[in-house]
Design a protein around this nucleic acid. Structure first.
Lengths: 171, 171
DNA sequence: CACAATTCAATTGTCTACAACTAAATGATG
DNA sequence: CATCATTTAGTTGTAGACAATTGAATTGTG
């Protein structure tokens, strides 16, 4: 137990954690961890149900959303949009190809690159996917404004977390 | 294409989606999906860095948090706290046991149940873990009040999503 | 032009997450 | 008391995520 009365000056100088003990922090951490982890999985679960008819998973849906919006694009670009690397995308795209939704072809002008494009079947799937978002929005029990607000908060949070990760790569 | 001019009455009656097209919904869905997925992974990433010294993963940390707070408890209870099933917990606990942080013993009074308890090493790890939450909180660039607010929002969201999942198990 | 550095996709290995199933123990009911 | 249903962990199979590495193609530089 750290019962030392003197707070470390460099710790409290720029935070609002004046009278919060490490114990309280651990408790709050437990709560925010759980909440975030649970929310993420709950969302995943709702999408799983909503996407069952389309025979694709949630991450596969994310890929299709990008393709529907952007059209054909290389794996690299796809990864930048989704913040995913080839280790995740390669097998995922292979499964989408096996399902007949996309085609992968090496670019003729740069043989390192692989272009991902929708098949007719993949394009057609969009029509059926139009029913999904409404279901998700309804499931959140939030109205459009609250959802936009949540989106913005999450984006700011992600930006902050990314910056923090860059500042502390490996001490 | 549903170009029918008449909106389906049961769709708009209890939502605020009056003038929002399916296309807009799809776009918003893309945004909220991405935001949530990205935030979840960014958090995961920050925890990964913060927990590297402790030699445990984020989900393993979640388990340890529960054990530090609750003491010894059966796998079942652990799963209820974390909303994880044995398919996830069994191998995870095996790894924590291999790392010398927990012990698993079948309960003498109910041989189906397996009690998970901290080893001395597992208990001791808590001291080092006390440094983690502050790092996480700092990384979010949010103050304590905002974090509590986020926690509450996420909890409400999870509750809503869970309820929606129950209402639509398989049509 | 030749050689080194970089880029890109894919692979390997580890760790979740979850559905579906198995096996063992316990409880309930006729 | 014997049989059936339920509870509890664990296993298997599939899919994501990510670090680390590989191999091929391209670019940059001397």
């Amino acid at each position: 137990m750290t019962t030392s009365a003197a707070p470390l000056p460099e710790e409290i100088s720029h935070t609002t954690s004046q009278e919060i003990s490490e114990e309280d922090f651990l408790r709050l951490d437990r709560q925010i961890c759980f909440s975030l982890h649970a929310a993420s999985r709950a969302f995943n679960s709702v999408y799983r149900v909503a996407l069952k008819d389309l025979r694709i998973t949630y991450p596969q849906y994310l890929v299709m959303l990008v393709l529907w919006e952007q059209g054909e694009l290389p794996v690299k670009k796809l990864g930048e949009h989704l913040r995913l690397d080839s280790g995740t995308l390669s097998p995922l795209l292979k499964r989408l190809e096996a399902a007949g939704l996309v085609r992968r072809e090496r670019s003729p002008r740069d043989e390192r690159s692989v272009e991902v494009r929708l098949t007719d079947e993949g394009t057609a799937l969009r029509e059926r996917a139009l029913a999904v978002p409404r279901r998700i929005v309804a499931a959140t029990a939030l109205d459009i404004e609250e959802i936009r607000d949540l989106r913005d908060r999450l984006n700011r949070l992600t930006t902050a977390l990314d910056e923090a990760a860059l500042e502390t790569p490996a001490p």
